[in-house]
Design a protein around this nucleic acid. Sequence first.
RNA 1: CGGGGUUUGGCGCAAUUGGCUAGCGCGCAGCGUUCGGGACGCUGAGGCUGCAGGUUCGAAUCCUGUAACCCCGACCA
Length: 570
Amino acid sequence: MRYSKLFGKTTKTVTKDAVAVSHKYLLQGGFIRQLAAGRYSLLPLGFIVAKKIEQVIRNEVEKTGAQEVIVPTLHPIELWQRANRDKKFGPAMMRVKDRNNSEFTLGATAEVVMLDLVDQFNVSYKDLPINIYQFSQKFRDEARATGGLLRVREFVMKDGYSFHQDETDLMVTFNNYKQAYINIFKKLELEAIPVEADSGAIGGNLSYEFMTETEVGEDTIAKCNCGYVANLEKATFIKQVMNAGQKKEPLAEVEAVRGATMEDGVALHKLPLWQQTKDVMFVDETGRFILALIRGDFSVNETKLKNLVNATELRHATDEEIINTLHSYPGFISPVGIKENLNKDTKFILVADDSIRTTINMYGGSNRQNIDLLNINIDRDWHADVEGDIAQVENGFLCPQCKKWELKLVKAIENGHIFNIGYVYSEPMNSTFVGQDGTLKKLYMGSYGIGIGRALATIVETHHDDKGIIWPSLVAPYQIHLLALDLSDKNVQLQADELYEQLLKKNLEVLYDDRPDITAGSKFADADLLGIPSRLVISKRSLDKGGIEIKLRTSPNSSVTSIKEYLSSV
RNA sequence: CGGGGUUUGGCGCAAUUGGCUAGCGCGCAGCGUUCGGGACGCUGAGGCUGCAGGUUCGAAUCCUGUAACCCCGACCA
């Protein structure tokens, strides 16, 4: 490609809106342009990279037996409703109507469409597993798009789906896919760690996210030197026993004129934070109140809580609700006696983090203003409806795996996600296959996604220097960046054009900077910015030295070789 | 959705006690000199100052409304 003819140019300045490095360099290099918030065009350079990433994915994924298909972008809303997905995905779904007033959703993911497709073939166990995938535009009305290509509202995703007789059968494909993803990210030179994760809106009981550590990541993962890694929504830690063995003292009521914070409680009672009860009141999407109880030095992870109590949405209860509906008082909520004060029609559940068992004689509110209770003990003074882990991991907490080292929280980008979905969709959609015994059985399902644009941006995030991008060779838009300097010199011009033609004849991917009136410095700067792996310079000077100068983007040094020699080496 | 901010040629910015023809740099086009790390000179094109309404002799500047975009948070594959 002659650079003079390439659509999309480099720019010296870039909008101040570009905060993430990848956003900045991709704009500056002419890889992408923004249309609207979270909606980007890929220019030729960006599109070539995207296609190369797709090819890497295609090659690896097909090793799992996956076959490529393509399904429509607009999905009949009824299909999503049948699978109960419209509620789970909710506001992130884009909806449109056609002229007949039929409602569609713009595909945010395609589990139900693929399941419906498979269903049409009346499959038997002999057909299974079925393993299909596509590359297609996905639409998600994200609350907030950020970081250029890192989180967008419209993007190309590779989404794969597999259908099985049972979980055992799925696990074969699932593990193959896991390996395929590991291979893909290795080839893309993205260090993506498989992390056990929450399945979120896709559903299912086992999922792995492939996380790449970067400063601009929007997810947080907990890591330990021993190798333990988990998404914050899933990560656990050792909750050390504090005073659990001690003697239980009698429950006592004391006056407590204090503020509503944990610190106020510590200051007033001169007792450790961990001995205080933390009482957080949530309301879920059904209007059910959820009192989450946890040791004072921990905090509640809302995703864990949601999963534990089967809620899809949580919000904090308002002061007004705490006073009028729950007959308690903000800052003085207590598990002791709260249920007895409720009206019959108030839906309420009391959840305790298991850390509550590591300490006794706790102190905290009494559901009345300015009165605290001392020596609160579970089982004696109150009972939890549900007990489990709802605690948020924090830096320095003890690793649950090795039980020796501290967990570190790091920022990461989720670049892929594979799900063991099970019967989440085949159940409501009644999707079945004929088993060996002749009876109908439910299809067991898995799904596997990678966002192309996000992978592209993550590569830039992790492969750049202060001058620009450094593309891994497999996904570089071109392999060779040929710079011709001194083009006013006829000889140089001739030799450069000739060299370009020769390289093309060898089927090499060459970007030829043939701009006649651009200074050397600009061409070098652009070459650094674009990040093509190997740079060739042909100029009066290089020809005087015997040929062309070769420099790799990754190296500060260059060498000169004759054109003939170079051509025979590539 | 809550908090903060921004909006002036393609990009980065300036001009507000309301007042000349809305400036500057980059970029773009033409000519010339240059030519190994973002050269220089001259010339030129390019703006309904986000949009709508209002106040005024006069609005980029004041008022009202509205939209888009960015950041933090909430949310989220």
